[in-house]
Write a protein that binds this DNA or RNA. Structure first.
Lengths: 265, 265
DNA sequence: CGTCAAGACATGTATGTACAAGTTACCGTC
DNA sequence: GACGGTAACTTGTACATACATGTCTTGACG
């Protein structure tokens, strides 16, 4: 059914307005793996079978398979057909940056209580990290993040003024700050996250409802534009019982990162 | 100079004992980018020039370029030659897995004190994670890891017996366990790291020389073979003052992970 | 009945060709 | 001098072919 829309004699029709063949093949193969049409753990059809099915040469088929192999959806090969493997989809920047999007992907309802949004002069530390002069104007946003109305994370963000000013036209309790910033075409391009552990200090402890000194998972984030100009410096403190981070990597070098609800294995 | 060793008429000599051509080309290209021979920001030679230089067809050259492009060392293209981009070297599996290698890359001397290496029956939790029957034989390895002779991390590893038995022929205080396992052709292929924070318990606290209850950065690691068979289940607890993890990602989706010495920014 | 060798078949590697599509530089025209 | 078109060059895509190499099955032989 579906295949007929794909492989039929593309040489006879004009293909200029469509995606390249190997990309269409790759998308179709991925769909088959995700849908279970090619069951996990079983070998997929051989290259020649795929060539015959879609009426193409080996080139595009191999390009598509290589793409999936690189993403980890296919493993093995050399002598025997590669084996399908369902993998968690990775949307690094989107879900890793946005608490809101992440919460939705794990089936929880995100919530937030804005503690403070203020325009003030940069502290020496924030100024250093953002590359600003000490005392330059910045916008600070402190929010308590909730999962199903339970406190999960305390977020302290410092935006450079040019970006932060947008927040005054926006209700941070309403929707995702990142979605709003991207919609306003702020050039959020690259983020560097540094993960460590800290003890809960009195204000954190009260908001997150834990004892002072309890271990918290801290993520410091420096978000920069595509030209490397710092735009945001953040300090997020997670309750380890509510969220963990995962990194999955293989010996070939593929890497998938993610943030997960704590207990569910 | 160097190129002559690479490209000269490999058709005339037996190539069976050497790496495939496109891999050698990829390594050579990467070397040129890292060494600055192909300066950052400038277009690299065109494909036809590279074909001429190494005496090959376009196929291997394009395969090598695609590899570098996927790693982020090359950007752009279509109509104009791609542009070199120096990126932080990412050797995810190697340095992320091996404390020894990581320590060396940050210029510290790794050390270790083996607390225990024992063959015993799997605990219910370890058995569940390793997919073994409860009580199946496993090998447990507990090591205190040092950086410049200062305690930095406490590592508790549980290996399935088939892999762990190798450790009895090997002195864990001598060299890298992972290097040894890879040398013995153990199929360590994929690792899933889960990061959270825990409070130091009495035995941890004593070995790491911190107060009971101090926050520790915990990394639980499940290492599996290429077929998805669990081989190792580990629980590493870092002093947050000695190490942090970083994740760098861009909006396009490339991701680089790393482990860093704490304060040095 | 077990073992090993041959062959069929799979993927990996490499070459050569052809054309499409984007980029750049140049040159003639207005 | 500014503009526009063309030509040359680049990479992207696709096909056909050939051979190397790894895997599995089959069948003959001991």
């Amino acid at each position: 059914m579906r295949s007929s829309a794909l492989g039929c004699h593309s040489r006879l029709v004009k293909t200029s307005d469509e995606l390249p063949l190997h990309q269409r093949l790759g998308a179709e193969f991925q769909r088959r793996i995700e849908s279970g049409e090619w069951p996990e753990g079983l070998p997929v059809p051989s290259e020649s079978q795929l060539c015959a099915e879609f009426g193409t040469s080996r080139g595009p088929v191999r390009q598509a398979l290589a793409m999936l192999r690189h993403e980890g959806s296919l493993v093995g090969g050399r002598g025997k057909p590669p084996v399908a493997r369902r993998t968690a989809p990775s949307q690094p920047f989107g879900t890793f940056l946005s608490f809101t999007q992440w919460a939705r992907t794990i089936g929880r309802e995100p919530g937030q209580r804005t503690i403070e949004v203020a325009r003030r002069r940069a502290s020496p530390e924030a100024a250093a990290r953002l590359g600003l002069a000490e005392g330059a104007p910045v916008v600070e946003l402190v929010r308590l993040r909730l999962l199903d109305d339970v406190p999960a994370m305390l977020e302290r963000s410092t935006f450079v003024h040019e970006v932060g000013r947008i927040l005054f036209d926006f209700d941070p309790d309403r929707g995702s700050v990142y979605e709003e910033l991207l919609r306003r075409e702020v050039d959020l391009h690259r983020a560097r996250h540094t993960i460590d552990a800290v003890a809960a200090e009195p204000p954190d402890a009260e908001l997150l409802r834990v004892a002072v000194g309890a271990p918290l998972l801290r993520v410091r984030r420096l978000t920069t534009s595509s030209l490397g100009v710092p735009l945001e410096d953040a300090d997020d403190r997670y309750l380890p019982a509510m969220a963990t981070f995962t990194i999955e990597n293989t010996i070939e070098g593929r890497t998938v990162i993610g943030r997960y609800r704590t207990e569910e294995d």
